[in-house]
Structure formats: structure tokens, C-alpha cells
Amino acid sequence: MKLLDISNLSVKFSGKRTVHAINNVSLSMEQGETLALLGESGSGKSVTLKALLGLLPPKRTQIDGQVHVNGTDVLGLKGKALQKYRGGEVSMVFQEPALALDPVYTVGHQIAESVMRHKGIDKANAMATALDMLDRVRIPSANRRLHNYPHELSGGMRQRVMIALALACKPKLLLADEPTTALDATVQIQILLLLRELQKEFGMGVIFVTHDIGVAVEISERVAVMYAGQIAEEGTTREIIRDPRHPYTQGLLAANLHDVARGARLNAIPGAPPALESKPDSCAFAPRCPVAMPECRAALPPVFEPGPRRRVACLRANEPIAAE
């Protein structure tokens, strides 16, 4: 059974302004896979995660399409079933652990609470699980840290606690929303390597949302590049890095400055992403694209599949080498 199967997911926010945040996204994952959702602010990567956990405000959100996690129809979940699913089957690590953790309970208490809820065991056993989890996320002197409040921990330590909390109930799918963006460089790499180890140890699937292509390379086997609420390109990390086919992916890679000559003029993508007030009916990237043709502005781009589980939503993706 597939771990994740999203088909034709669309999310529209209404209110003062209408925003078509996600437009016909289809995506699937096998058990134990790691996928990076790569994109800039407003590309719909975080909204995708929130839809997976049923965290979008129902009053102002219109969701179409299907989302299945391990065969469960996520969009149909309500009440008790939704509670059991969140934190049990699927859990999430947020960008700001300081905001996601409750400041008035010790970290041990917070982890234990989640275990008690989902596994129905008593507090003493739950605390033992919490201690074990703190050990597994390599928190030094875990016994003492168990009784600390979040403000007593450093940023990197808090993010480790957040990961321990998310993994305490052995979820099948872990969602990570820019979990290292707020951390320092030397701490970020520690957390990335920890997540990589834990993923192997627990055998879970991971969706890792990031705007940093370097982080995606460190953490994931596969990458899906999002733009304007759609998937522009998908493939293995190797394919995306070595052979990017979508002009947007190519632009993002160039903007990383990884091996740009000092002082050379940068090949910047002009303009800014669209506001998404209406659903895109042509290629959303065309206004910024260096190789756009009139056809790109006339209709949605076809999706090419150059290989198995590889796709590029670009009219010119099948051309040997895209012009600079």
C-alpha cells in the first residue's frame, strides 16, 4: 500500500482576499521514503502539509481532491478519528519549537501526554517512553532534561524535543515544516543528520518542507519543486540537482550561489511569484521564464514524464538542453 496518495488536491482560501494556494496537486510516496517539498514563500508547500494533518481552518477553506495516508481518507476524518490520526499515524515538526511547545509544562510531561493519549498507558510508563525518546534524539543527560521547561533549553535542544514529541507514537509519516530554518548553521546540520538517522531507525516516511535546496539534498531521496501551488518538477534528489529540466528549478539552483564565480553577474529570475488571486489557467511561471513561448501563456503546460516517477510541468522539458 502507498504511504501517501494525493490526487488533484486544490485548496482555496476565501475571506478578504481569495487565494488559490494549491492547484491540482498530485503526489505519492512509498513507505519509508523521504521527500523534500522545495519552494519559495507562497508556493503552497506548508499548506500541503497542513492539509495532510487537517489543520486548515474549515470555515475559510475550500478543499477539493483526495488525500489518502495508508489507505485512510484524510479529508473525511472527523472528531475522535482525526485525533487518533494526528500524532499517531502522522505527526509534525514545526519551524519554531519555542512556539509549538507549551511553555507551562515540562518537556517530559508534554511527550508523556501524547503517548498516554495514543497508547492508553499510565503516566509512569509514558514518562519512561518520554525519557527513551529524549535519549534517542541525543539529548545529553536526558534524565534531567525531562523535567525542564522549554525556555530552559537552547534552540537546537528544543527542536530535538519537538522531534522526540513527534516520534513518540511511532508515526508512519513525519511532516517537517522548515524545522531547521530558525537554527544556526552548525546546529542545523546536527538536526538534519539526526533526522536522517531517526528516519532509518524508525523506517517512517518523511516530508520535509524547505526553501533551501542544500537542506533538501542533505535530507531527502526525492524532491518535488513547488511553484504557485503546483508541482513544477519531481524526481530523485540526484535527478533534480544534476539534471533540472524546469526553468524554475534551474533558476533556483543558480540562485544558490554554490559555485558561482565571485562578482560574476547572477542569472536572477526576474519579477516575483504570482499572487494567486485566480486559479492559474496557463503556466504560472511563464511571466518570469527566460525561455517562455506564446503557447506557455495560452494553456497549462503538459506534464512530461522523462522517466519512472519523474515529471516536469513544462512545454519545453523534452528539449535536450534548455536555453540559458
Partner: peptide, 14 residues
């Protein structure tokens, strides 16, 4: 600590 940008040669130890 900079990400490696190389999927075949990822960072191994912090």
C-alpha cells in the same frame, strides 16, 4: 556545516 549540494557525497558527521 554548509550543506554539501552533492547527493552522492552527503555530510556524514556534524
Amino acid at each position: 556545516a554548509m550543506p554539501s549540494m552533492d547527493p552522492d557525497n552527503r555530510t556524514q558527521t556534524p
